[in-house]
Design a protein around this nucleic acid. Structure first.
Length: 592
RNA sequence: GGUUCCGUAGCUCAGUUGGAUAGAGCAACAGCCUUCUAAGCUGUGGGCCAUUGGUUCGAAUCCAAUCGGAAUCACCA
């Protein structure tokens, strides 16, 4: 690409004019700001110590060198210490010619063999997915796709938390009050059915606790002594003892939940290469902890429990094995990480997990390091903040969890109503129309969530997300559909070659520059694991295109070569929008 | 209290490895439908980049302190 060429020649210029070698990687260019003439800008300030000349003189020297040496450089200008380099329009046009038919433009063709693992979703099987899972799923899936586009060999992994006291609570409530209810008999999605009984358990459990408190029990004691809780704990023990009846119920109920999850995943367009179940992995980790203890890397307390001492690293001590020898969450995670490393030797293990577990992952990495596993650095916690709705915070503790299925259904309904109000569609119940509402609703949701920096807590405003103006998914879908319909009218005139001598206007050159940037954007998004970078890029591209070609009708153009160019450019832009939106998991309709 | 993250227009958010006069959208206001789709486009107003110091040619960006907000600090997962 032209940037590298310019950087290399700038280094050559400094060497030839000032007789000093500079490190090529230290030279960087930026896009020239709109208010100045030029395509790329080089700031000379850091090199003044070498050149021993004024910023202006230095810029002029280097600019002149580039102009003399490089055919692609048309001209240059200097403002203060900024060297603005003007690239010939013919370069941009030949770039268009070279890449227009490349369907995977921007994607790295070199495929790496070392796998990168991305773990996301990680649901509990006692309740349906909620808004937090939506952000998790979208982020994980999108990051995986971006890495793939960049040539990584990605393994998408889900770790289902299918065991523990929580699922026992659902099972117990179902046994007591369920009347043998099934998804078929109740018409409920399997995960919602389990969730219903989890809530039922909680309600009755709280009632029991209140009754005990009224009888004079201490609240803490009451919480432990409530009959329902004792019963649930008994069930967990039976499960661990592989009691036949409990296992049967557990299998049955989990199967319902998985069916429900699959529907939600499918609706969202989320998939996995591999699913792990905690019931298979919860005993892992003990051996590496014991090994670490034998090697004197861990400490033991009087009650025989085993701990990692992280006080030297500025953290506390962390329990790894209980006094009865059973493992805790951390032990399991140590085990699964170890197992995955043994199995795949991934160059990176990315865990998409909410920021409430930042501390957990800090500890995880430190303990692994302490135990002598040098691959602990390959673990990366992709942490994300909470999603809130305008109505208020969504926290499970406050009981205002926003259900994922419900939210998606509401988004689809909003899309339907908007189309109806605007009179956009003739047959509102046709298959095509229903598919379109679905596409728009999901596009709105995904785009809005992915465009925000993961680290930040965010506000999801459903109404704003589905607006067709502004930085939204539907706006980009709309732009794509418009380009497609335009190209449809022109399909007999699409040429795969554009005359490099035609005159193009500034805005068209801006579009070409933006397209030119696309591979770098994907690369950077992969490096920083940031779908937000992609969405901001597409918006800029779509806006630039939409604004411009709304004003300049392509088919009015009498100059056939210019018209061909504009059609070719439109074609390229629509392809990039489609491919970039694909990385966010958003489909773009050809017609809407 | 310790640790981590966040603080940019009334609201929701961008802001590339430190670069030129701080960017969008929404909301407000003023225009644009005989062209390809107005689910759109164009324009106007709106800022102590939380505060204060430091680092340097240059700071929203890096460092320190302070003030606000969030998360976390379990023999839960």
């Amino acid at each position: 690409m032209i940037e590298q060429l310019l950087c290399k020649n700038i280094a050559d210029a400094i060497k030839s004019i000032y007789q000093t070698e500079v490190d090529l990687s230290s030279i960087s260019l930026q896009k020239t700001r709109k208010e100045f003439e030029g395509d790329f800008t080089f700031a000379v300030f850091p090199y003044l110590k070498i050149t021993k000349k004024s910023p202006e003189q230095t810029s002029n020297d280097i600019g002149q060198y580039l102009k003399d040496v490089l055919d692609e450089v048309n001209d240059f200008n200097v403002i203060k210490g900024f060297l603005n380099i003007v690239i010939k329009k013919s370069y941009w046009l030949s770039f268009l010619n070279q890449n227009i038919n490349n369907k995977s433009f921007g994607f790295n063709p070199v495929k790496k063999s070392t796998p990168v693992m991305v773990e996301y979703s990680s649901p509990n099987t006692n309740k349906p997915l909620h808004l937090g899972h939506i952000r998790n799923n979208l982020l994980g899936w999108s990051v995986a796709e971006i890495l793939k586009a960049n040539g990584e060999n990605v393994l998408k992994v889900n770790l289902v938390n299918d065991r523990g006291i929580h699922i026992c609570k659902s099972m117990l409530a179902w046994k007591i009050w369920g009347n043998m209810e099934t998804p078929q008999s109740s018409g409920l999605k399997g995960d919602h059915l389990a969730g219903k009984y989890y809530v039922l358990f909680d309600k009755n459990y709280k009632k029991e606790v209140e009754e005990l408190v009224a009888k004079g029990y201490d609240k803490e004691v009451a919480e432990k002594q409530a009959p329902l809780m004792l019963e649930a704990q008994k069930m967990l023990r039976l499960w661990e003892a592989k009691d036949e009846d409990v296992l049967k119920l557990w299998n049955r109920m989990n199967a319902w939940v998985y069916e429900g999850f699959d529907v939600t995943y499918k609706t969202m367009g989320i998939d996995f290469d591999k699913t792990y179940y905690e019931s298979n992995t919860y005993l892992l980790g003990k051996s590496i902890v014991e090994k670490g203890f034998n090697e004197n890397k861990l400490i033991q307390k009087e009650d025989n429990s085993i701990w990692a001492d992280l006080t030297g690293e500025g953290l506390d001590e962390k329990l790894l094995l209980r006094s009865d020898g059973t493992s805790v969450y951390m032990t399991q995670d140590l085990g699964t990480a170890h197992q995955r490393h043994e199995e795949y030797k991934p160059s990176k293990m990315i865990y998409v997990v909410g920021n409430e577990q930042n501390y957990h992952f800090d500890v995880l990495k430190l303990v692994l390091k302490k135990l002598g596993y040098d691959w602990s650095d390959s673990i990366y916690h992709l942490s994300y903040g909470m999603v809130e709705l305008p109505e208020g915070k969504m926290k499970s503790r406050e009981g205002t969890v926003v259900d994922a299925d419900l939210l998606i259904a509401e988004m689809i309904e909003t899309a339907r109503q908007t189309a109806f109000e605007l009179g956009k569609i003739d047959d509102f119940e046709s298959e095509a129309a229903i598919k379109l509402y679905h596409t728009i609703a999901l596009g709105a949701l995904k785009y809005f969530i992915l465009k925000v920096d993961p680290q930040k807590n965010m506000m999801f405003n459903p109404k704003e997300s589905i607006d067709f103006n502004g930085n939204t998914g539907p706006f980009i879908q709309y732009t794509h559909a418009r380009i497609k319909s335009l190209l449809n009218k022109a399909d007999n005139v699409i040429s795969n070659h554009v005359d490099v001598n035609i005159n193009i206007v500034e805005k068209e050159k801006n579009l070409l520059q933006l397209i030119h940037e696309y591979p770098a954007v994907i690369n950077q998004a992969a490096e920083s694991l940031s779908p937000a970078l992609i969405s901001n890029y597409i918006y800029e591209l779509a806006k630039e295109y939409n604004g411009f070609y709304q004003e300049i009708p392509i088919f009015k153009e009498e100059n056939m070569e210019l018209r061909d160019f504009r059609i070719a450019l439109s074609y390229f832009v629509s392809n990039i929008i489609k491919s970039a939106m694909g990385l966010l998991g958003i489909s773009v309709p050809d017609k809407m």
